[in-house]
Structures are given as structure tokens and as C-alpha cells.
Nucleic acid binder design. Structure first.
Lengths: 131, 131
DNA sequence: ATTGGTGCAAATGCTTTGCATAAAG
DNA sequence: CTTTATGCAAAGCATTTGCACCAAT
């Protein structure tokens, strides 16, 4: 994997953001430093780097993918309303890998806890909408 | 929610299949019984029923969504190569909801263990490709 | 010099939607 | 009868890809 300007800046900005941005959100930020960059380059690099384990790709209920520059193992909460993602703390030592009993022949590569809920700002919106 | 023929048969076939089918796989199966059904109807009903908690929508690394007619809480393994999904057994009592310590203000609706790995048939393919 | 990466625009593919018609309650 | 669901085709939208050009090693 060649070290290009684009790749470095994409990684740098993804690590700086703590918001688990979507590809196009990250593209907007990176564009400020590299005005001629293409969204395709952002997608290609996010894909390559997540395959390489440098970053993490997060799924969210069929919405746009989100990316996480923090590749230490940790759990997330997904807002089922707006798609926002937060990190969460869980009990130490309760790794999903240890909890699995029968993997149905699958070679387990990783496991994690995943939560779904409603984020604070969507809870506010729900209250407003109720009136 | 009105009880239509389409809705009943979609649910029936989804419950019968234990393969966590994609919308179009299910469409193919349902079409044998209802030749004039539209894929849009399948999508609409899967969406409605998963909102209502009758069935479950499963995400899989940015691939096509898969659906599960078994709505009892349980964990899945996702094949990172082909997208196949299997149910897995985990230790009793280790619910993700209990493990969470700080939910960052999110109102947790559900939590579960999620694994990624390589399914048996893709492991075979990997062996073949190595030669 | 050679390989791999980029930008652009077009294509892809899953999913959703508008609308006229049909079925359910 | 009134409302909700369906079928069809077209649109939407995030993501991927072909290709000619450029940059890194």
C-alpha cells in the first residue's frame, strides 16, 4: 500500500474526527485540504484501510456506512432514528469471542457487542413530536 | 396492518427458510406461490414487519440486507466473504443489555452479540484458491 | 521505468416511491 | 364505502468501476 497524500490526509482526518463519519462527511472535511480529491478516492481508501485493519467500517441499519479511525476493540451504540453512533463502555473481560459456544463451523475473526437505541437528540425530537 | 395474502405468504416463507434470506431470495421463493407479486411488495412488507418487531432485519458489512423470521433474541455470525449468516449459541445470561456500563445518554432498545468470520464453504474456497 | 493510485463520469445494484388499480375491513 | 396494499415502472442514492492520466517507489 503506497503512501499517497490523499491516503495520509484521509486517515489523519478520520482519526481527528470522533463522530464516526460517513464517507461523504469525511470527503467534505478532506476536500478543505485537498480541493481536487474525488469521492471515489475516499471510498477506495476507506475500503483498503478497513480491509487492512487500520480503521473500522461500521454498519448501521441499512443506512450509509460509517467509519471509525479508532481501531482498538470497543463497542458502539447506533441510533435507530438518526444513524448517529457513539462509543460505549462495557464490562472488562467480557469479550464476545469468549462468549461464543458454537460457531457453526465459522472461523471467527472478530466479535463485538452491538447496541441499538435512541440518541439524546432524537429523544428530544420525539418529545417535541408528541405535541 | 391489514392481513393480505402477500403479507401472510411472505411471513410464512420467511419463517420456513432458516437461511436468513435477502429480499430478492425471498421474492424468488414467494413468487412460486404468488407469481404476480412485485419485489416492491416484498420490500415494503419486510420493512413494515421488522418495524413491528414481527421479524428481524440483519445488516451485513454493507451487503444486501438479510431477514430473519425468528424474532426470539439470539446472536448471529456473518461470513465476511460470502455474506452468509448463521445463528450461534452464546452463554446464558450474558445479555448485552446487562453488560453495558455507560450508554452515552442513548435509550437502549436492544443489544446483541455480533460476530464476523468465514463460513465453512468459504473456508473450502480459500483452500482451493491457495493452489 | 514500472506499478499502483487518482479523478472523472458513467454504471451498478439494492431499495424506495409515485401512481393507478385492486383488495380488505 | 373508505382506507390500505399492490404491481409496475421509474427514480434514488450510496457505492463501485472503467479508463486515461499522474505520482510514488
Amino acid at each position: 500500500m503506497r503512501i499517497t497524500n490523499q491516503r495520509e490526509i484521509i486517515l489523519e482526518e478520520l482519526r481527528r474526527l470522533r463522530t464516526h463519519p460517513t464517507a461523504d462527511e469525511l470527503y467534505e472535511v478532506v476536500k478543505r485540504r485537498l480541493p481536487r480529491i474525488s469521492i471515489a478516492t475516499v471510498y477506495r481508501n476507506l475500503e483498503r484501510m478497513s480491509e487492512a485493519g487500520i480503521i473500522h467500517k461500521l454498519e448501521n441499519g441499512g443506512r450509509q456506512k460509517r467509519f471509525d479511525g479508532d481501531n482498538r476493540p470497543h463497542s458502539h451504540v447506533f441510533c435507530i432514528r438518526c444513524g448517529r453512533i457513539s462509543d460505549v463502555r462495557t464490562v472488562e473481560g467480557a469479550s464476545a469471542r469468549d462468549l461464543i459456544l458454537d460457531s457453526k463451523g465459522f472461523q471467527i475473526i472478530e466479535g463485538g457487542l452491538q447496541f441499538e437505541g435512541v440518541c439524546p437528540s432524537c429523544q428530544d425530537n420525539e418529545k417535541l413530536e408528541a405535541n
